[in-house]
Design a protein around this nucleic acid. Structure first.
Lengths: 309, 309
DNA sequence: ACATTTTGTTGAAACGTTTCAACAAATTCA
DNA sequence: TGAATTTGTTGAAACGTTTCAACAAAATGT
């Protein structure tokens, strides 16, 4: 029971060639094939509970109908939301997605690329970590189509789908200023990732354009991982330091979550004493007593654009 | 540039047979093979930037080194945390994971099973939705190893890794009673899924064992999807109905999140007026002004046990 | 009646591996 | 020295598909 059944088995049972079975089951040459034999073949196929061996098919056709998704961490809500959208879009086109978390680690990232390439994925969707330029360049040589999401490398000419991060933070800061805030801090990562530099640049430019002199102690840069402590120190500095701020802009949802958790334990009234703006909506923050403003990424559109590329 | 290079290419360049190349690259028959030729082959392989075609290998070996993960929704924190752990464990054994979200929908679920089986996954990890027994039975015939997680079917004899849900809610309720609560409500799904029935049963039994007479209007059962409204109505009934409760037990993280969000907008002091206990820790709830108690699932252990099976 | 076209079907090669069975040459044994 | 063993290598089949090129039989045209 449940032995593997192949085209050959069907062919034998039907007394025809495997070619014919293949044609019928793939609806090819429909105009040529005898309706009766076709029906018979289909009958046998379903009686034997035949299922195409995709591996064999892939080997022959050189298409795996698989797309690889490499993100920072699938358990991060931002990425898992992304994954869900990619999955749905892929499904519409009958693709399956395999995923891997890089933990923003260049070595793990390289390994994932290698694995996915070996598996002959038809395409890749990638949120590249810092210092991974060379692997992106490698990928280009390999001719496997890929798209960067969320991040990009200004020095490399690739397809990418990212928010206009500069504009996003620029507008956010302008909004804060519009509501009367004058001392605006930001917590971001100490990284060279272009999208984060853009966010920083947008922040700076907005201050400048509104004649607010930027102070170095308004900007806190933390590690990308295990940064809980740093974030708390940063928050402390910002609200209790020599020049306390009246608003903070967080460069990512995970920074925002950690910071807000901490602020939650403090005696700070939000938004009366302190305005907060986050990046990437996340359910986690909905429960904060004061509603947070978000810079929302149009994930749906991003996902779709990506798959289509 | 970047043309596909195969064993044959290496063999030709090295003037040996593909057999030998295969042996060398897979470190087989090491004792037999001439060190020099081995080195030469390896040299050529890396110069040509050879990478095994896993598809071809899989076809021959009948192993794909892929495991399929079918959960309710990858963007649900509980499942994405699960996915992350599965990924890590799989990675340790050099497996890749493909995933799919069933949305608790039996039809989508069946399609995922079919897809993954066609792709010859080596094994499956499944959080089965309601009414999917027949697909599980089908899977058993197919001889593909699989494990159920989070849920199980009492009528089917399978491997599964689930929390002792009965015990968990039993203890939670006992704890509430221990802290003086006497009118304890529960919000769960109106479903036949055994693990949720267990949670309900644990709640009931604990009440009974502590001589608290259960009242039907303490128990609210909501749909598994699009239940925001129902949950809010449920919460309202529980705290403002004819017999207001002094504690609520939520049967899942998503119920808890929705409920707490709503409670957050009300004039209810937690935990003074109302105790809350959730299921499956989720970051979302950390920001609630009052710390919530959780029934935490030992995800790590679950993941490991699962992969090993 | 013969040539042409259409209809229905098939054999065999190919995709890139793995692996069995075999072999010649070199080495060891007695 | 001849037999036995070890060392190093290989040809070819197989995995389950897809697809090209070919063919016979039937139908059509003149």
């Amino acid at each position: 029971m449940a032995e593997k059944v192949s085209l050959k088995d069907i062919a034998k049972k039907a007394g025809v060639s495997t070619t014919l079975v293949s044609y019928v089951l793939n609806n090819q040459h429909e105009n040529r094939i005898n309706k009766e034999t076709a029906k018979k073949i289909r009958g046998i196929a379903s009686k034997l509970n035949y299922h195409t061996n995709q591996i064999a098919r892939s080997l022959k056709t050189n298409k795996t109908h698989t797309i690889g998704l490499i993100i920072g961490d699938i358990s991060n809500p931002f990425f898992s939301a992304m994954a869900r959208i990619v999955e749905d879009e892929a499904d519409k086109k009958n693709y399956t997605v395999i995923f891997g978390s890089s933990d923003e680690n260049e070595v793990k990232f390289a390994k994932l690329i290698r694995t996915f390439v070996n598996r002959q994925v038809d395409g890749l969707i990638i949120a590249p970590p810092q210092n991974s330029e060379k692997h992106i360049l490698y990928l280009q040589k390999t001719k496997i189509p890929f798209v960067l999401i969320d991040r990009y490398f200004p020095t490399i000419n690739t397809d990418y789908v990212v928010l206009d991060n500069f504009e996003a933070t620029y507008n956010a800061v302008r909004h804060l200023i519009g509501t009367g805030r004058k001392r605006i801090g930001m917590i971001t990562y100490n990284t060279g990732l272009a999208h984060l530099l853009d966010r920083k640049a947008g922040y700076m430019k907005a201050l400048k354009d509104h004649k607010i002199k930027f102070r170095a102690d308004w900007l806190k840069e933390v590690e990308m991982y295990n940064n809980k402590n740093e974030i708390e120190i940063g928050v402390n500095d910002l609200i209790a330091g020599s020049a306390p701020v009246d608003a903070i802009l967080f460069a990512s949802n995970s920074i925002a979550t950690n910071a807000v958790k901490y602020i939650n334990t403090l005696q700070v009234r939000v938004p009366e004493m302190l305005s907060l703006i986050g990046f990437d909506e996340t359910e986690a923050l909905d429960l904060f007593y004061a509603p947070l403003t978000y810079i929302r990424q149009p994930l749906q559109e991003i996902g779709q654009a990506t798959i289509n590329l």
